[in-house]
């Protein structure tokens, strides 16, 4: 099963770079959704003899429902119905941000990989993937000017935290599930986006009223 896990980790990292490079919001949201779906497979692929099956299934289904489908769908709906500009508009250009992201991933593999883990028998790419993904998320939050871009960055950051949490699933499964609470923030962000839009709609309505009362 190690080869499948290798493939999954590499795909997660490639998607990091893809989100950094995508200039259209729609593509970014799809990439984040795909990453969430891949993460849902990870607990299944990594499950050892020590993990409870019930737990693995719950975690995988939960991740798929929330990270792969729920939040991306809400986000896509919020952007479709609003007047939000669909371009990403980064503060740092796409090529430099991709280089920075790749650099972070390389550093993560180089340095975080060899540190001996206190728990034996874990996949060697797990920690580098977690750190690299969290780094990508931070980079997205810092470099994107539009609110939706920042929310995407937060989702990627959250995915990195989730990957790291998988290390704990043998002995502290409850902590991993606590991580789902982070998604609450994501949900609130989507609500915030909708509110931004309502606010804008109200203010434009107000000025129209002022104009119509003139005559």
């Amino acid at each position: 099963m190690t080869t499948w896990a290798d493939l999954l980790f590499l795909l997660v990292l490639v998607l990091d770079l893809f989100v950094l490079a995508s200039s259209r919001l729609r593509a970014g949201i799809r990439a984040v959704a795909a990453q969430g779906g891949l993460l849902a497979l990870l607990p299944v692929v990594l499950a050892g003899p020590a993990t409870e099956t019930r737990h693995v299934v719950a975690l995988a289904l939960g991740a798929l429902a929330v990270k792969g489908v729920g939040i991306p769908w809400l986000l896509a709906r919020a952007t479709r119905e609003s007047t939000v500009n669909r371009e990403v508009a980064p503060l740092v250009g796409f090529a430099p941000s991709m280089v920075l992201g790749a650099l972070g991933i390389v550093v993560a593999v180089w340095y975080a990989g060899p540190i001996p883990l206190p728990v034996p028998g874990k996949h060697p790419l797990l920690v580098p993937t977690a750190i690299g993904t969290a780094w990508t998320g931070l980079l997205l939050i810092v470099t994107r000017r539009k609110a939706v871009g920042q929310v995407l960055g937060f989702l990627v950051l959250e995915n990195g935290v989730f990957v790291l949490g998988l290390l704990l699933s043998d002995f502290m499964p409850a902590m991993v599930e606590v991580g789902v609470l982070l998604d609450l923030f994501a949900a609130v962000f989507v609500m915030g986006l909708v509110m931004f839009d309502i606010q804008r709609a109200f203010s434009s309505l107000d000025t129209e009223k002022l104009a119509s009362l003139k005559d």
Partner: peptide, 14 residues
Amino acid sequence: IAMALLGTFLLALA
């Protein structure tokens, strides 16, 4: 908060 969760996971690992 996400950073703090990451740190909490790392401490659990430690």
